[in-house]
Amino acid sequence: MSSFVAQRNGQAATAEELAPLAFAGYAHFTAMQARGGRVRGLDLHLERLRSASLELFGRAVPDDRMRSFLRAALEQGPADVSLTATVHSREGEFTAGGDGAEPAVLVRTGPPASGPQGPLALATVEHERFLPAVKHVGEIAKTYLLRRAVADGYDDAAFLDRHGRLSEASIWNLAFWDGTAVVWPDAEVLGGTTMGVLRRRLDGLGVPQSVREVRPADVPGLAGAVVMNSWTPGVAVHRIGDTPVPDAPEFRELLHEAYGAEPLVAP
């Protein structure tokens, strides 16, 4: 088959089931790229869904059941797709909840994506996400700040926390290169699945990594920067605010090599 799907708990979602979700903001999700019906970092996606469900709902869908939902969606579409799994409460939004029901899962597939070519210019904006460790829905600020950045002549926005540290970008993790080591920002961020894949694969390749605070004043001393998400392990950043960032093709090649070393796994 060649059609994309929207399934709720492994079955085609009806209009009646989808209607309440149109205005729902109390949910979380993970997004992935499937190639040949397989994904990288499946364990990280499952861990993300499990931990976020426990945080938001106090109960999580078992991994084997979640995998069956992912598998059902992949079996009904093309071999290469973008897939999003959204977990929501059956009690809905603006309720106290408390009945202990297992959350419901909406899985959607769409055309595969690989992200922008870059290089990107990032505006710096003071912003901190609520519950930064959870990939939750309804984040109007990210789209608003992205659009403001584009209106100001940038490609996207990078966030500064209350301490003036660079943390993440609108839908991206940030990573830097100091010439010998990969530098991950020390700040409260969403730990991306691509970021997790890269950290363990870079360890396997013996590439030095560090976690340290990065402020705008530190950018001139860096040798390169990228953004990453489920689309890609690295898109070049050539400017942060008014500060140019050197091109570092060897950095991007290293990240793509590390990412490619992660096996594709069927749910």
Rank of each mutant, 00 (worst) to 15 (best):
L21V: 10
V105R: 00
L18W: 10
G97T: 02
G138H: 05
V39W: 01
Y26C: 12
R252N: 05
G58I: 12
V207S: 09
M195R: 14
M228G: 07
F251C: 12
F4V: 12
V211P: 00
P116I: 03
Q7L: 13
Y26D: 10
G25K: 14
R239N: 06
G118K: 11
L44C: 07
A158F: 13
A31S: 15
L42W: 08
A31K: 10
L49E: 01
G77Y: 07
G241K: 01
R165N: 10
L198S: 05
G10W: 01
I240A: 04
V227H: 00
R35V: 13
D156A: 02
E253I: 10
V182D: 02
V134T: 11
G36P: 11
G164E: 07
I140L: 11
L21T: 10
S3W: 08
L174E: 01
I240C: 05
A52N: 10
D63F: 09
W231M: 15
H28C: 04
T14M: 03
R59F: 09
L160P: 08
V207D: 07
E75I: 00
R38F: 04
A217R: 11
H45E: 00
V226R: 02
L166I: 08
M32L: 15
S2D: 09
N9D: 14
A104V: 07
M1A: 12
F159P: 05
A266P: 04
Q117L: 15
V183C: 03
A223G: 10
V211L: 02
A96I: 12
G100H: 03
A101W: 08
H163T: 13
G37T: 04
A19S: 12
W177Y: 10
G196E: 05
E16G: 14
I240W: 03
G37A: 05
D63E: 15
S210G: 10
A258N: 04
A13K: 04
A133S: 13
H88G: 08
R71K: 14
V107K: 00
S230Q: 09
T95A: 04
E250T: 15
S2A: 12
L202D: 00
L49Y: 01
I171Y: 09
K142V: 15
K142P: 11
A123H: 06
L160N: 07
L145K: 01
D155V: 06
A24G: 14
L190G: 06
F69V: 04
A248Q: 02
T14Q: 02
A248V: 10
L166H: 01
D247F: 09
P233Y: 08
A121N: 06
Y26M: 14
G192P: 03
L46F: 04
V235D: 00
R40C: 11
L120Q: 04
A34I: 06
K142T: 15
A113N: 12
E17I: 10
P244W: 07
G41T: 03
G36E: 13
A85E: 02
E139S: 07
V219K: 03
R59C: 11
G41Q: 05
Q33H: 14
D247N: 07
L54I: 14
A266D: 04
V137G: 08
G37L: 07
V207K: 09
R90P: 08
D178P: 05
